Amino acid sequence: MTNAGPVNPKAKILSEHQRLATSGARGAHVFRTGDGLHLVVPQLAEDVPGQVADMNGGDADVDALLYRWEGARFVEVDRLPCPSGEDAVSFRSGGRTYLAFANLRTGSGPYDTDVRSLIYREDEGEWIVDETVPTFGAKQWHHFLVDDREFLALAQGLTVPGLTHRGHGRSVIFERIDGRWQEFQVLGGRWGYNWAHFRIGGHHFLGYADHVSPSVVYRWNGQSFVPYQTFAERFGRSFLHFSRDGGEWLAFACIDGDSTLYRWNGELFERHQSLGGPGGREFELFRHGDDLFLVRVCFVLGGPPAPRTDLMSQLYRWEHGRFEVIEEFPTSGGTDASHFEADGRNFLVVANSLTPDVRFRQDSVVYELSLGKA
């Protein structure tokens, strides 16, 4: 039976446009290639009949779903092998388009978290595996440039009793050398989640969020990334940087604490505003005309034994130097959101990963945004 998931009957700005039949969706990455607008949804797991509900259970040997925008809807056009996909990122390198997946594990219990994460390359409209990278509990890739150097940062690691790793198991940055990714710098985080690369005053910074290690903003010193400012000792989930009103801003999500907006004072980021309580996992920022909008996606409350998955996530608008909530919308184990424009309209696709009874078969939702009502 299809689980229709939550619907918000009082929506004013967000109206449901399409549902996508996903299972443990961990990302909603919108990107463009020469043949149009695409969406890729990495999936964590599928439900195993008879298996007790467990947000860390299920069959991990699943596919990522690849869609193309056709006739004002997303149409599934491919499925790419992608065991326990936690994240997907597209990037261009050497004139080609790539899709990098962070793969958490394989199997259906017991699981193997030493996995070769998959990097696909587009080749005449087909996606082929270009390279595999040894990873341990991989969570997110982040592609960025520092001057003429090309990097791919990997958030990874787990500290679950009984798990061992064949490599160092720490979050790491790779550099593109002769067409291949080579390990450049090990940062040391033991359960990484997220990255954000940004520049302020000509300096490169790299935000890194971690669950059991400190969440830190690093600064490039010309040779490597060095710790610059710590934001939380534990439970970090994501960073997002933007510029507005002549200032530099950084949003930080913490799963077991407040999400917080910080402002750059010329040397450090200072706390400026709370962006809501526990449960925050991911941000999406977009502009419409002169307006600035922020989405905070909420995941769960509580730990794996008894998580609450049916939460409200928020749409904010920038007003007088602060973000104000202009609408809340329901998510069920929400993990990601991506804004896009198509056919002269604004949309937001939201990845939902868990039902209220902690099963994986939960629809992800594409909303149309009536931003004129904001």
Rank of each mutant, 00 (worst) to 15 (best):
Phe74Leu: 09
Arg79Cys: 04
Trp220Leu: 02
Gly246Ile: 05
Ser224Phe: 07
Arg68Gly: 06
Pro134Ala: 09
Asn56Phe: 13
Ser215Thr: 00
Met1Thr: 14
Thr230Gly: 11
Ser243Trp: 07
Ile177Asp: 15
Tyr193Ala: 08
Arg345Ala: 15
Trp191Glu: 12
Asp258Pro: 15
Gly5Met: 11
Asn352Met: 00
Trp195Tyr: 07
Phe360Pro: 02
Val133His: 02
Ala45Asn: 10
Thr331Ile: 04
Arg308Pro: 06
His241Cys: 05
Glu233Gly: 08
Leu14Met: 15
Tyr208His: 13
Asp258Val: 10
Cys254Gly: 08
Asp112Glu: 13
Thr33Val: 10
Pro81Val: 06
Gly85Val: 01
Arg322Pro: 01
Leu369Cys: 11
Arg281Lys: 15
Val75Ala: 13
Gln314Thr: 15
Leu311Gln: 01
Asn265Gln: 07
Ser171Thr: 05
Pro6Gly: 14
Glu46Val: 15
Leu250Tyr: 05
Cys254Arg: 15
Ser84Cys: 12
Tyr316Ala: 02
Asp78Arg: 07
Ile128Arg: 15
Glu233Met: 10
Arg219Met: 13
Gly257Leu: 06
Val216Trp: 03
Pro42Arg: 06
Gly5Phe: 07
Pro161Lys: 02
Trp249Leu: 15
Leu80His: 05
Ala28Pro: 03
Pro278Ala: 13
Gly257Thr: 06
Asp87Met: 05
Asn56Ile: 07
Gly188Ala: 08
Arg219Lys: 14
Gly57Trp: 06
Leu14Phe: 12
Asp63Trp: 09
Arg308Cys: 09
Ala102Trp: 03
Leu294Ala: 06
Tyr228Ile: 05
Ser313Thr: 00
Phe231Cys: 00
Pro278Phe: 03
Thr230Met: 10
His29Asn: 11
Pro330Leu: 00
Phe323Thr: 11
Leu294His: 01
Asn8Leu: 09
Leu163Gln: 08
Phe235Glu: 12
Val89Thr: 13
Thr260Glu: 13
Val350Arg: 03
Gly27Glu: 07
Glu341Asn: 11
Leu39His: 09
Pro278Asp: 08
Ser353Cys: 07
